[in-house]
């Protein structure tokens, strides 16, 4: 890092090893929390720390990863997308409908899911960026609307009896990983690159940090806002396809409540709901944290209702620790 101090020598802070280590721990408190949780589960369950179990965690994480990435972009702009759970359902139903009615070609459900997700996201984006409706309200409306559309497509019932090709999206394996897991890993890397290294990423951070200042610096904020909701919609569409492909069924209640886990992952990852602060790596970590807790509690045979109680406590405690640490960062 170049120092731009030209005429005044800034007082070099004296640093001891102890303070360096302390600082590192505080700076990466979420990693510390994650390691503690992993250590705990590994100690209590022999099956936890095995390669098979790691794959299980990744498979469970994949559909959440896609919507959490979209959510990261939206939250970085200072918005929120509450509709992703319902968009998953509507996209899954659209995909299943196309597979059943258009013919036995895996590209039909892919296109149908992407289009359904894009349509929902584009409407969100239009309402937020052009009609200036607060994102919370706009996407709350879409949550209800998309859920309704999902039931309309199936006439209130799931769509079963899908052609075998419908399963390829979730069940094909490369190098031991299924498509959703590979998609998750690729998406995290691509989004991390986009957010850190491209002008698009910087603009997203900028409008979240201060929209007026960003506009004055030449950022076209309306287009940009539109784009993040559209991306969030497309990713929810993909997630819907993966989830329904895994069970070869289109269920209108698929993805219900997933938006909350996605938001939790982003917030645990250190993002501010005010916008402008957060990162893709943080979201990935938050996502893994939640999925690891789910998986570990399953292995320890903790009853499902207690799992929710414990998860709720850990989410709030993790963010409280982050807030505590951020006050002590130097």
């Amino acid at each position: 890092m170049t120092t731009t101090t030209a005429d005044v020598v800034s007082a070099q802070k004296t640093r001891t090893w102890k303070s360096i280590v302390g600082n590192f721990l505080i700076r990466n408190i979420m990693v510390v929390v994650m390691l503690l949780i992993v250590a705990f589960f590994a100690y209590r369950s022999a099956r936890f720390a095995t390669p098979d179990n790691l794959v299980t965690i990744l498979v469970a994480a994949a559909p959440f990863a896609l919507i959490a990435l979209g959510q990261t972009l939206v939250i970085l702009t200072g918005g929120i997308d509450l509709s992703v759970g319902s968009v998953i359902a509507a996209s899954a139903m659209a995909a299943a409908w196309s597979a059943k009615n258009l013919g036995d070609n895996p590209l039909y459900p892919l296109l149908a899911a992407l289009l359904a997700g894009l349509a929902a996201g584009a409407i969100n984006g239009f309402v937020v960026s052009r009609l200036n409706v607060p994102p919370f309200i706009a996407t709350l409306g879409m949550l209800t609307l998309a859920s309704g559309v999902a039931y309309v497509i199936g006439n209130g019932a799931p769509i079963n009896g899908l052609p075998a090709s419908y399963g390829v999206w979730a069940n094909t394996e490369f190098l031991g990983f299924t498509v959703p897991v590979i998609l998750m890993i690729v998406a995290i890397i691509v989004f991390a690159f986009v957010m850190r290294r491209t002008s698009y990423g910087l603009r997203v951070y900028a409008i979240g940090g201060n929209r007026l200042a960003a506009e004055i610096a030449g950022v076209r904020s309306k287009r940009l806002l539109f784009s993040v909701y559209a991306i969030s919609g497309i990713l929810a569409g993909l997630s819907g396809l993966m989830l329904s492909s895994r069970v070869s069924t289109g269920a209108p209640n698929l993805g219900q409540g997933y938006e909350l886990d996605a938001i939790a992952a982003v917030v645990i990852g250190g993002a501010s709901l005010m916008g402008g602060r957060g990162s893709v790596w943080g979201t990935a970590l938050g996502l893994l944290l939640i999925q690891t807790i789910n998986n570990g509690l399953d292995l320890l045979l903790v009853p499902a209702y207690w799992q929710d109680v414990i998860k709720g406590v850990i989410i709030v405690a993790a963010v409280a620790a982050d807030v505590w640490a951020s006050k002590r960062r130097t």
Binding site: L202, R203, Y205, A206, G208, G209, N210, L212, A213, A214, I216, A217, G218, V219, S272, G276, R277
Partner: peptide, 16 residues
């Protein structure tokens, strides 16, 4: 309110 984008670094502010 209209000049600096507070959460961003000096270089990101200056890049925009």
């Amino acid at each position: 309110g209209a000049g600096a984008i507070m959460p961003l670094s000096v270089i990101d502010n200056a890049t925009l």
